[in-house]
């Protein structure tokens, strides 16, 4: 997921860098105003936790491969959006500086896709959902949905950055978008499962750690609405418009054939984009049927998986809490 140098154009790197620097700078200032002296130990420790937790391998049930946590949403839920954003920026900086994981020029883009979107946007979605449904179930559902959406939104952002870097007709944004969001709607299920599992564990053993989010500050609420709407629109585009876009291309080809516009001839776009340790072999989305099917499947699968995870984890946490309460009354 870390973008290396040379993949994105210099202009895109610069733009993403300015955006990321703005978000991180704002978070640092907010942190200094609110928690002041505790900023360094609390945020630094959270960054170290995310760094270590990313190295913990989660076994995948169906494949001899491993998945791992990204952590933006988890950090934001536990220590708040501002500290979460700074912690992710620190983690990504250390990975870049120590492991050469992600390029120096592409740091802004990496921080934006994985840090800012995950913590600020993810926390906004989390607080919207968890304030609507009270109790542990709302918190878990919020964490699960936010984790899934943060991964999908990050991949959508990457495909926009990549398409902006390679204008001049090599890449077809809707198709790139469809491939990236399809792949990451699967990757995101892992992130959602891990984040939801950790949050439900924390709620069971230390419920006070994650208290109900108060009214989010204005900027965050606004950003939340933007991310929420953006994600829904993006998914809608991926799910509904992308198939039509390819149909539109076919129609264009027919027109071109009829009018003998040879210059409209299109070569099929096939992209192979790897992720994490699991290289996914060529997904050819140029043929219409598979394309539509994959996008539709991804939408249906992702949504139902996220709903299912929230329901199951919510029930588990509720029974666990109930058992704990019963034990407490018994002991008392």
């Amino acid at each position: 997921m870390h973008i290396a140098d040379g993949i994105l154009s210099n202009e895109v790197c610069l733009g993403a860098g300015v955006l990321a620097a703005g978000a991180i700078g704002l978070s640092l200032r907010k942190l200094n105003d609110t928690v002041s002296l505790r900023t360094v130990p609390l945020t630094g420790m959270m960054a170290a936790v995310i760094f270590a937790a990313q190295m913990v391998k989660f076994p995948l049930a169906f494949a001899p491969a491993y998945g791992h946590l990204l952590g933006g949403v988890l950090a934001a839920i536990v220590v708040g959006p501002w500290a979460g954003c700074v912690a992710m920026a620190i983690v990504l900086f250390l990975q870049m500086a120590l492991f050469a994981d992600g390029g120096w020029l592409a740091y802004g883009a990496n921080a934006l896709n994985m840090g800012v979107v995950g913590s600020l946007g993810g926390h906004a979605i989390y607080s919207i959902i968890s304030r609507r449904f009270a109790g542990p179930r709302g918190k878990i559902a919020g964490a699960v949905v936010a984790a899934w959406l943060s991964v999908v939104a990050g991949s959508a952002l990457f495909s926009v950055e990549f398409a902006l870097s390679h204008r001049g007709g090599e890449f077809d944004l809707p198709k790139l978008f469809a491939v990236m969001t399809t792949l990451h709607s699967l990757v995101g299920v892992g992130e959602a499962l891990i984040t939801g599992g950790v949050v439900s564990y924390l709620l069971a053993v230390w419920p006070d750690l994650i208290d109900a989010p108060s009214r989010p500050p204005g900027v965050i609420a606004g950003l939340g609405r933007v991310v929420w709407t953006g994600a829904v629109v993006a998914l809608a585009v991926a799910a509904f418009l992308a198939p039509f876009a390819s149909e539109g291309a076919d129609a264009l080809e027919q027109t071109a054939e009829r009018f003998k516009f040879d210059k409209f001839e299109r070569t099929p776009v096939a992209l192979v984009l790897p992720d994490y340790e699991v290289p996914i072999p060529g997904v050819d989305v140029s043929t219409g049927a598979w394309h539509k099917l994959s996008v539709a499947l991804a939408g249906v699968f992702g949504t139902s998986a996220v709903l299912g995870i929230s329901l199951v984890l919510g029930r588990v946490a509720r029974t666990r809490l109930a058992a704990r309460d019963a034990e407490a009354t018994h002991a008392g």
Binding site: L42, M45, M46, A48, V49, A52, A53, V56, K57, F58, P59, L69, L74, V78, I194, G197, V198, Y201, L202, V205, W206, L209
Partner: peptide, 14 residues
Amino acid sequence: ATTRLVGLLLIRAL
């Protein structure tokens, strides 16, 4: 078990 490992690490670290 791995999820609990991560959760416990977080609690201890905080």
